[in-house]
């Protein structure tokens, strides 16, 4: 987005756009709070909250950070970063459920702790 060509009324058009995005962000924030009080089941609550957060984030990213009019190379950089970000979280957390079968590690730490507590109480 090269700055020389932007004339004053174009900038004013952008300003109106920014105010519109501002309103949208406030509305989305209100939604995410109200939805949080409605219990749609743990999984869906997380999904909805993250969906709204991603929507707000993309609004900020596209308009406020001018990503919409930015060069493709920056989009490439962000995609690469997002891939590693997702890889890090996915593999780190994914590894939690993956335990070697047929060994004491077979169960997740939470289950092992539960057994540990039972054995304590039974003595």
């Amino acid at each position: 987005m090269d700055q020389e060509t932007l004339s004053v009324e174009e900038v004013n058009r952008h300003v109106k756009l920014y105010l519109g995005v501002f309103a949208a962000l406030l509305v989305l924030t209100a939604i995410t709070v109200t939805v949080a009080f409605v219990d749609l089941g743990h999984g869906t609550n997380i999904g909805v909250a993250l969906l709204i957060a991603t929507a707000k984030a993309s609004l900020v990213g596209l308009f406020f950070m001018h990503l919409k009019w930015e060069r493709k190379s920056l989009h490439g950089l962000l995609l690469l970063t997002f891939f590693f970000f997702a890889g890090m979280i996915g593999l780190t957390v994914g590894g939690y459920w993956d335990t070697p079968n047929g060994t004491v590690h077979d169960r997740t730490p939470v289950e092992i702790q539960a057994i540990h507590h039972q054995s304590e109480r039974s003595e």
Binding site: G87, G94, N101
Partner: peptide
């Protein structure tokens, strides 16, 4: 450079990771 980000757990084969993670 790209692949170097998705290999790190070969330092952790003996931490009780399952066969899916090991294989990956």
């Amino acid at each position: 450079g790209f692949m170097s980000f998705v290999v790190w757990s070969h330092h952790m084969y003996l931490t009780g990771m399952g066969s899916v993670m090991n294989a990956f």
